[in-house]
Design a protein around this nucleic acid. Structure first.
Lengths: 252, 252
DNA sequence: ACATGAATATTGGAT
DNA sequence: ATCCAATTTTCATGT
């Protein structure tokens, strides 16, 4: 797993290490150092000299991790070119990307550790409780939303986006359902409203209902929902451990 | 910078190392190992046995980095409790968070490396080209958007959100300006439209214009903009290296 | 390559 | 604590 490890490397040693490991490829290269980071592209940023952990993955992605938080201080998701050089005796890494045009430049002023790791194949990854799962479960059994509901379509395209679930209620009215896997905000309400308006514009004066289905709504969103004549239905995307009387779990 | 380093630790050594370093605090603790990761909370996920780099920062944030991409395979932004244990001879880290209730559980099946790093103070960080900067620059000189424009308000609250810039044009008409630091999508168009509708509802029949100011728009967004009677103005948030004749740079 | 939308989004600020 | 909007969002997906 550990391909190579250098402690307190000199600038020359670090530059050679990086050059060799990146040329070899296939490794996750990591440098712990006091460094200075520049970014220019979609925005521009400067991180003055500080101690960071720099990760360079096999796909060329670069991230500069600081002492706190999940988000890196600087990063680049994918790079088309990686370059290592000694500039005025300091090892420098430049990661460049063409579309969009941007780059990250890390100057390793005081290297403390350099690592090359081979992570090999990783196992399967399973995520449960996504919106897609919720959609499938509700399409399978739309009565979870409301008794008598029948699904007409999923991801039905309109001129303002795709309708998550398009259905007909027990009274024959068309129903637009907007799903959210988490707490729904007013953005979800506006999204739903656009879909309902769009459907109304097509079917004319036929009655069209709009339902926001989510585990929760923010208070302002619920107000707006009512003001627009739309409805809310509590639906949970995750398996429930303890199900209250009002709650509806897809896997309950 | 490197407080401690273990290569090929036994499960017992790793557990002790983690326990000690996390109790001591102030360090970025890292483990390279074949491990299995569980997450449960806002969603649920399982990462089957694979080789990962696990970072535990001083603020309790945990991230499990895989061989590719900037985004971790599993993570937790902040944790209220970190727990290390030996379960059936395997070192296990559990990071728990109370609000929202969630946890990540990492079982280090085959540890290869353990690190404790002290990152110390990091220097200043400067980000340029944010929307806030763009807003300030345009409020300072709104003629960048259009000659004769005078700013009435910034972040003016309406019942559907805050208007980035509220202005009056040379003909005395009210102007709602929505800013985007990147390419504007149809969501930005709908946002702008909501603000314009909201202003119209208040001022009655007075004429209200809506301008979307961004460095670029997607083609569908531009179509919708036209259909709604709104306008687009190209404005760049970043300093321009080479400014074309039609372009307007805030720092040009 | 472009557009779209989800995400365990994260993060910071305002209320 | 809640809500809201920006983000170098990233990332997968469809066209």
């Amino acid at each position: 797993m550990v391909r190579d490890l250098l402690t307190e490397p000199s600038h020359e040693e670090l530059a050679e290490f990086l050059d060799e490991q990146l040329r070899l490829g296939g490794a996750l290269v990591q440098v712990v150092a006091e460094c200075e980071v520049l970014y220019s592209g979609r925005a521009a940023s400067v991180a003055e000299a500080g101690e960071y952990v720099v990760l360079v993955k096999a796909d060329g992605s670069v991230q500069v991790q600081g002492p706190r938080g999940v988000k890196p201080v600087n990063w680049q998701p994918q790079t088309d070119r990686l370059d290592v050089a000694l500039e005025e005796g300091v090892a420098v890494l430049v990661a460049e990307r063409f579309t969009p045009a941007e780059f990250v430049r890390v100057a390793f002023h005081r290297p403390a550790l350099a690592l090359a790791l081979e992570l090999g194949e990783n196992g399967n990854f399973l995520l449960m409780g996504t919106e897609a799962e919720m959609q499938r479960a509700l399409a399978q059994d739309p009565t979870i939303i409301e008794p008598g509901l029948t699904v007409l379509d999923m991801e039905l395209p309109t001129d303002v986006g795709g309708i998550d679930l398009f259905a007909r209620d027990v009274a024959g009215r068309l129903v637009v359902v907007e799903l959210k896997r988490g707490k729904a905000t007013h953005e979800a309400v506006h999204q739903l409203n656009r879909y309902v308006q769009s459907v109304r514009a097509v079917v004319g004066d036929a009655e069209v209902r709009g339902i926001l289905a989510a585990p929760a709504v923010t208070a302002p969103a619920l107000n707006r929902l009512g003001a627009l004549g739309l409805e809310f239905r509590e639906v949970t995307a995750l398996p429930l451990v303890e199900s209250g009387p009002e709650q509806v779990g897809l896997f309950g």
